[in-house]
Structures are given as C-alpha cells and as structure tokens.
C-alpha cells in the first residue's frame, strides 16, 4: 500500500505536467487501477469549465491577431515540409523579441486616474519609462473601477552596504478602496546574472525570522527596477520593515541572498 500512496501523491505533479516520461508512464499505470485518483483527476479536469473564467478580461495587445494568424499559416507551410517536428513549431512563433519589462501591467489605467498616478510615480523615481508604459496602456485598456488612491506611507530605502554606487530606492504604500498597493522604485541596482532577481520582503515586528515575500522583479539595463504589488487586508501595524534582496533565483522562500536596501515602516 505504501507504494500506492506514493503514487497517489504524484497526482498534482501529473496534472501539472511535471512528471518525466517514465514517471508519467508509471503513474498512468497506477491511475488505471486507482479510482480515487481517477475521480480527483476528473474533478480537476472539470475545473477548465470554471477557473479560466477567473481571469480578468484583458484586451489583447494591438496587432496580436495579425501576428498570430501569420504565425499559424506560416507554420502551416513549414509543417508541410517538416511534419511532426515540434521543436520547429515553438521556434517559429516568436516574431518579436523580449523587451525589458516594466512591471506595470496591472497598474490601474483608467484615464482620469492617470495624471495623478503618473505624477505620483514620477515624483518617486523619475521613471519616465513607466510613465510611457502607463500612457500606452491607457489606450489599450478601459477600466470601470472608480476609486481614489491615497498615499498611506512613503519611505526612502537605505542601502545596507554603503559602497560606491550604492543602490537607492523608495517604497510607497497606496490605498485604493479596500486594497493596498505597494510601489517600489529602485535605481543604481547592480547587474543580474543568470536567474538572479530582486525580491521584496515584508518583515513583521512579531516574527522577524519569517519575512513574507511580496514581489519579484528584475532590473533594466540601466539598473532601474520597479515593482507594484497589491495586498488585501494590509495592516500597516503588522509590518515594521521592508527590504529588497538580491536572490539567486525567483524561488527563494526566505531571503537567501544579500539584502541591499531596507527601511523601517
């Protein structure tokens, strides 16, 4: 029975496609004989009628249809030449390159909020790129929410090591209705290698040993970085420190790398 339980425990990894060829085959053999796993898998598969609809309806980027149809029909021609070559398919579908990302995707973009939000963000770090992104987004999205943002707290993040070219940053805590967004702007960040990222941590006064990871971002070529994250039920009394660390990858559950910027809240 022990092996049986072990197999049942692989259901999540099977459903999410994490099993290798052999593991998958072994699990599927188990699945054939385990009604419990079958039932659970059926339920999970049925979620496709519900959970995808938990997505905010977002307007696709301009020109996506043309790019997609071009990729589909171009692929059609190549696949006639090289049928069943899947590796070819994935390479042929990227007519654009990955630009450096400014993490403003979910920032509210209702037009009347824009001037205030943009001025506010500019005042933080003079992040003109972000401003441009916001403007661009405003033409792509319309928004129905009518709330007024209120700045709850603004702090300057201090570098932990004061070497030359030390990083600088600010954190703003903004209330929008029942939600609280935290906007971090940082500059003079050092370059990132491989999978490295910057991560934001909130540290509780009562339990300083268990910081909560709040956001992840990468810096631009010029060493600037911005992250916006939203928290529900944010209690300003709960947190007494905000910190940014340089992490080896985005999977760190607690800060593993060096803390570069921090401030009391």
């Amino acid at each position: 029975m022990a092996t049986n339980r072990a197999h049942c425990d692989q259901l999540i990894d099977y459903f999410n496609g994490h099993l290798s060829g052999e593991e998958k085959k072994a699990f599927e053999e188990h699945l054939n004989t385990c009604t419990e796993c079958q039932e659970e898998l059926n339920e999970w598969n049925a979620l496709i009628d519900e959970l995808p609809y938990d997505s905010e309806p977002v307007t696709p980027p301009e020109g996506m249809k043309e790019r997609t149809l071009a990729a589909v029909f171009k692929e059609d021609e190549t696949s006639k030449a090289e049928k069943d070559d899947e590796s070819n398919q994935t390479q042929a579908i990227s007519p654009f390159t990955h630009a450096e990302k400014a993490p403003v995707k979910k920032f509210p973009s209702k037009k009347w909020v824009l001037p205030a939000a943009a001025a506010f963000l500019l005042s933080l770090g003079g992040n003109v790129f972000l401003f441009n992104q916001l403007q661009q987004q405003s033409t792509e999205l319309t928004q129905s929410q009518e709330t007024i943002d209120e700045l709850m707290q603004f702090v300057t993040l201090s570098p932990v090591n004061t070497e030359e070219a030390a990083p600088a940053g600010t954190a703003s805590i903004v209330r929008r209705g029942s939600e609280v967004s935290v906007v971090i702007n940082a500059s003079s960040l050092g370059p990132l290698r491989d999978n490295e990222v910057y991560q934001v941590w909130l540290i509780e006064g009562d339990s300083p040993d268990t910081p909560q990871r709040a956001g992840t971002f990468v810096s631009s070529e010029t060493g600037d970085g911005t992250v916006v994250f939203t928290m529900e039920n944010f209690n300003p009394e709960q947190w007494n420190t905000i910190a940014i660390s340089h992490e080896p990858d985005a999977d760190s559950q607690t800060p593993e790398g060096e803390v570069i910027l921090a401030s009391e809240l």
């Binding site: 999410n16 496609g17 905010e56 309806p57 977002v58 307007t59 990955h98 990302k101 993490p103 995707k105 979910k106 920032f107 509210p108 973009s109 999205l141 319309t142 928004q143 129905s144 929410q145 709330t147 929008r176 209705g177 939600e179 967004s181 491989d194 999978n195 990222v197 990871r213 709040a214 956001g215 992840t216 971002f217 990468v218 992250v227 916006v228 994250f229 939203t230 928290m231 529900e232 990858d249 985005a250």
Partner: peptide
C-alpha cells in the same frame, strides 16, 4: 504551463493578489 516551465529562469513580477480589475471593452 509548458512556457512557464521554460521561462522559469526568467521570472517576471509576482503579484500577491490581483490588482483592481481592468475591464476590457467587448470585442
């Protein structure tokens, strides 16, 4: 999920909770 696995090395911003809805116009 496939793309996320491939992109695991290139993380982007993570959101704790979703931000305000961005209702898109009907198409």
């Amino acid at each position: 999920l496939d793309f996320l696995r491939k992109q695991a090395n290139k993380p982007t911003v993570e959101y704790e909770e979703r931000d305000s809805p961005q209702e898109a116009a009907d198409s």
